[in-house]
Design a protein around this nucleic acid. Structure first.
Length: 297
DNA sequence: CAGATTTGACCATC
DNA sequence: GATGGTCAAATCTG
């Protein structure tokens, strides 16, 4: 029911439902991460002559870091996949609470309600993974739900300008299973409240990303309801009607390198001190081993 | 007291 | 029937 097409810069996944496109996205993301890792390896081999010189050591380290980050991201995706396939949590049936006068009152209010139609075909959505939920926009929380099979509740927000400017954007924020300090933030729709400050918002996001990188572990310890925190958006998913497009442009803050930067943020590789242990490296070897190997070629 | 958040209910979709 | 998105009254907070 879906096709996954990879042309190097874009992946398109067709899907007929939200849940299936999420799993398709996961598959597509893993495929893309795999490709990124392989490309990094290829680049490393291509540049082996240049990178073996002492002065290009920083570049080589960077390249190693990129490969490591891809591998780490892949590992997380594998974990997530395993979890969702085998680890379905049992349903916790609390039973219905007894009927109060409040309930009766609500029954009479139903006629006032607008239809709350579940999105069968989301027209536009974007998911990022970040340890910070602030994005420079104002959001009003309008709901929270426990999600089946997920240990963290999902919070629902809408743009504060929904009423005054008719901005239709909503977002869903949920802590990831892999790391409580990382949030999966799904934006649905696009802001119509910020025509003027569109670029400003983009800049804000980039600033946030930078800031986050610097404060990686500073503020990730708040409780579930006060979702805060740090680093960059790692992965971005875009879907138009039934189409999901995984972009890999830096302009959209969704490059592969950002995917890796967030994941490396989980267990930071210290590029500064050059402390690359084999365990950290996605290539399965340390920097020195790698250089030795490159030199041997 | 106004605005924001919480929480249980409603309802569409699968 | 299960699940997830939204509503709106109740509650909280500054």
């Amino acid at each position: 029911m879906e096709s996954v097409k990879s042309n190097g810069t874009e992946q398109v996944v067709k899907s007929s439902s939200l849940s299936s496109w999420q799993s398709n996205l996961q598959e597509a993301a893993m495929e893309e991460l795999n490709r990124g890792q392989k490309q990094a390896e290829r680049l490393l081999l291509l540049l082996k002559g240049v990178l073996s010189s002492p002065e290009s050591r920083p570049a080589a380290e960077l390249l190693v870091d990129v490969g490591a980050a891809f591998a780490k991201a892949l590992t997380f995706m594998e974990l997530k996949k395993d979890e969702s396939e085998s680890d379905k949590a049992p349903i916790n049936s609390e039973g219905m609470s007894s009927c109060s006068h409040e309930q009766i009152k609500r029954k009479f209010q139903t006629s006032r309600r607008r239809s709350c139609r579940r999105r069968a075909h989301p027209y536009s959505c974007t998911t990022i993974f970040s340890t910070k939920i602030e994005d420079g926009h104002g959001w009003r929380k309008y709901g929270q739900k426990g999600i089946y099979g997920s240990k963290h509740p999902r919070s629902y927000y809408r743009c504060v300008h929904k009423h005054d400017r008719g901005c239709p954007v909503t977002r869903q924020v949920q802590r990831t299973e892999e790391d409580d300090s990382i949030f999966a933030i799904t934006y649905v729709g696009q802001h119509t409240c910020m025509e003027d400050d569109h670029t400003t918002a983009a800049t804000d996001l980039q600033a946030l990303t930078l800031e986050s990188k610097m404060n990686k572990n500073d503020d990730a310890s708040d409780d579930d309801d006060k979702e805060l925190a740090a680093p960059p958006s790692a992965m971005k998913r875009d879907c138009e009607e039934e189409m999901i497009s995984i972009e890999s442009t830096t302009a959209g803050s969704c490059s592969s390198s950002e995917i890796s930067s967030t994941f490396s943020g989980l267990a930071p590789l210290s590029a500064e001190d050059g402390n690359y242990s084999s365990a950290n490296l996605g290539f399965g070897m340390g920097f020195d081993e790698l250089i030795a190997l490159m030199s041997a070629h």
